[in-house]
Computed example of a mutant assay.
Amino acid sequence: MYERHLIASLDTTPLRPALREILTHPARLDELISDMGVPQGCLVGNTTAELVPHDSEATQVVTRSYRRFTDILTDALRRAQAAGEVTGTARPEAQAQLLLYVVQGLSLVSRAGLDRTAALAAIDTAIDALRA
């Protein structure tokens, strides 16, 4: 279900606003607080932090999830490069990997508290770096 939502979200023009929406999800964890009042973070990110590399099955699941995320983003970025919307000076695979690191880093940091303004500024900086 998440993959279908991600693909549908990225199948828009222009791409950068859609990417911003996806990346701001971890920065909005204050809006997604659990009943206990504690941000739960991302399931895949939490699994990475807590189980990888001690659990080979968890490692495989996380690796597949991250690969699928970057594959989906790579396809969207490749289309946006062809349309001249994002810079062509970097490989779309590298751009997608950077965005994975941004979203997972924000998800992890948000568990300890997050300066929402700083997080949004960092996301905007990452998105602006894609500008053609």
Rank of each mutant, 00 (worst) to 15 (best):
R64Y: 01
I127A: 09
L77Y: 12
I123T: 09
A122Y: 04
L32N: 09
H25E: 07
A121Q: 13
T24Q: 12
V52Y: 11
R67V: 02
T12A: 15
E21W: 06
A94T: 08
A80T: 11
L43P: 05
N46S: 11
T47K: 15
A27F: 02
A76K: 11
A8D: 08
E3P: 13
A119G: 00
I7F: 02
T63I: 01
L15M: 03
R68W: 01
D11R: 04
D75E: 13
V103S: 15
V103C: 05
S34W: 05
C42N: 01
V86W: 07
S9D: 02
G84C: 00
T89H: 14
T87M: 11
L29I: 01
V61H: 15
Y66I: 05
D71K: 01
H54D: 07
A58W: 05
M1E: 00
E93G: 09
D30T: 03
S110P: 06
L23W: 07
S107C: 14
I7E: 02
D128A: 15
L19N: 00
A49H: 05
N46G: 05
P17W: 00
S110N: 06
P14G: 03
R64S: 11
D55S: 04
C42K: 10
G41Q: 10
A83Q: 12
A83R: 11
I127M: 09
I127R: 03
Q40R: 12
L51I: 03
R28C: 04
S9R: 08
T12W: 00
I123S: 08
V86Q: 02
N46Q: 06
A8K: 04
R78G: 04
V52C: 06
G84E: 09
R79K: 14
P17Q: 00
G37S: 01
L51S: 10
Q40E: 14
R67F: 01
R4V: 07
T13C: 02
T24M: 13
F69M: 15
T48Q: 11
L100I: 07
P53C: 08
E93Q: 07
I123C: 09
